[in-house]
C-alpha cells in the first residue's frame, strides 16, 4: 500500500474530488432527486472522507467506500428550510422541480421514502444485490427487501400497473 494512499496530500485529495464528485452526485441525485440536497450530500461525503481517510484500509475500494458514505449522507440529510433559504442564490436552486420527461413516474418516485428510493436506485440502477444495498444503507437485508417491495407496490398502484 502506497503511503500516499494512507494520508492524502492536498493534491491527491483534489484529484479525488475531481474524479469522484460527478459519480457521487449521480448516486445522491438518484436517491434524493433534489440538486441542492444532492450537493449537500456530496459535500458532506467529501468532508467525512477527508476526516476519516486513515480508516480506508484498502485504497482499491476507495470508490465503494465513498459511495457508502454518500448513501448514508443521503439517508440522513435533514431538510433545513432556513439553510435552504440562505442557499437560494445558488444557480440551480429551483432544480428540485421535476425535470424528467416521465412526469408520472417522477412524481411517484419522489413520493417514496428516502430509504425506498435508495434501495430502488442502488438495486436497479447500480446493480447491487439486496444484501449489498443493506450494507450500503446500514440496515438489515430484510429491511432493504421490505423497502424495495413497498416501493414497487406503491409505484404499481400509482402508475396503474395493477
Amino acid at each position: 500500500m502506497a503511503l500516499e494512499d494512507q494520508a492524502p496530500s492536498t493534491d491527491r485529495f483534489e484529484a479525488i474530488v475531481r474524479a469522484e464528485t460527478g459519480p457521487l452526485f449521480g448516486v445522491a441525485y438518484s436517491i434524493l432527486r433534489d440538486v441542492q440536497e444532492a450537493e449537500d450530500a456530496v459535500q458532506e461525503t467529501m468532508e467525512v472522507a477527508w476526516r476519516r481517510w486513515d480508516s480506508l484500509r484498502d485504497p482499491q475500494k476507495r470508490g465503494a467506500w465513498l459511495r457508502q458514505i454518500c448513501v448514508r449522507r443521503c439517508l440522513r440529510i435533514h431538510r433545513n428550510l432556513l439553510r435552504r433559504s440562505w442557499l437560494a442564490d445558488r444557480s440551480e436552486s429551483a432544480a428540485s422541480i421535476p425535470t424528467d420527461h416521465d412526469l408520472d413516474l417522477d412524481r411517484s418516485f419522489r413520493g417514496l421514502t428516502r430509504q425506498q428510493r435508495a434501495v430502488v436506485a442502488l438495486h436497479y440502477q447500480y446493480g447491487y444485490t439486496l444484501d449489498e444495498c443493506a450494507g450500503l444503507m446500514g440496515c438489515r437485508p430484510g429491511t432493504a427487501r421490505s423497502h424495495l417491495a413497498r416501493a414497487l407496490q406503491t409505484l404499481r398502484e400509482e402508475l396503474g400497473y395493477e
Binding site: 464528485t21 460527478g22 452526485f25 449521480g26 448516486v27 441525485y29 438518484s30 432527486r33 440538486v35 450537493e39 456530496v42 445558488r90 444557480s91 440551480e92 424528467d100 430502488v120 436506485a121 436497479y124 440502477q125 447500480y126
Partner: peptide, 10 residues
C-alpha cells in the same frame, strides 16, 4: 433511474 444518475453535477 439512468437519466437521473447521468445528471451532471453542477
Amino acid at each position: 433511474l439512468a437519466r437521473g444518475a447521468a445528471r451532471p453535477a453542477p
